[in-house]
């Protein structure tokens, strides 16, 4: 196996590993689903570089995510891996993956689509915003006028 192939194999292993690191606020989605992991790179310096980005500047989960990512890397033997914080480009809800969106909807949180907001419980599009602010920085508060249930919507930013 060439060095490049070997590096690629390690990178894939780390991506799979990080797919198991749950978001502390919404544990059904991983940090990969949310687009928080920006890169996994086996660099020329021989070290593994993992880039993660904060979602919102003030999100209290950021420190927990950093700690659980570090713990996951260490537990898999990547103790020398460098965990780097990436600020630019700023995180966008566009980076939430298709798998992440499906998991959010199944969990009862309307995913961040710019189109009409669909009620995650009954599927109706007859929904309205109660407040642009919700229980966490990433969610807005909605209600369904068909089934009358309140629900969270992952904000578009």
């Amino acid at each position: 196996m060439s060095v490049a192939e070997h590096a690629g194999g390690i990178e894939q292993r780390v991506w799979r590993l990080l797919e198991e690191v749950a978001d502390p606020e919404i544990p059904v989605v991983s940090i990969v689903d949310l687009g928080i992991v920006r890169y996994v790179r086996h660099a020329a310096d021989g070290r593994l570089h993992v880039g993660i980005t904060p979602t919102y500047s003030g999100c209290p989960a950021t420190a927990a995510i950093r700690a659980s990512t570090r713990a996951a890397l260490d537990a898999a033997g990547f103790t020398a891996a460098l965990l780097e914080e990436v600020l630019a480009p700023a995180w966008s809800s566009d980076w939430v993956t298709a798998a992440g969106r499906a998991k959010l909807a199944a969990f009862g949180i309307a995913p961040p689509t710019p189109a009409a907001v669909r009620c995650p419980r009954c599927g109706s599009l007859a929904t309205e915003r109660v407040s642009e602010f919700g229980s966490t920085p990433c969610k807005a508060h909605y209600r369904c006028t068909a089934c009358r249930e309140p629900f969270d919507r992952f904000k578009c930013i």
Partner: peptide, 11 residues
């Protein structure tokens, strides 16, 4: 909730 969210972003 809105004011708390704003405060959190600002901090």
């Amino acid at each position: 909730l809105a004011l708390a969210n704003l405060a959190l972003d600002l901090i």
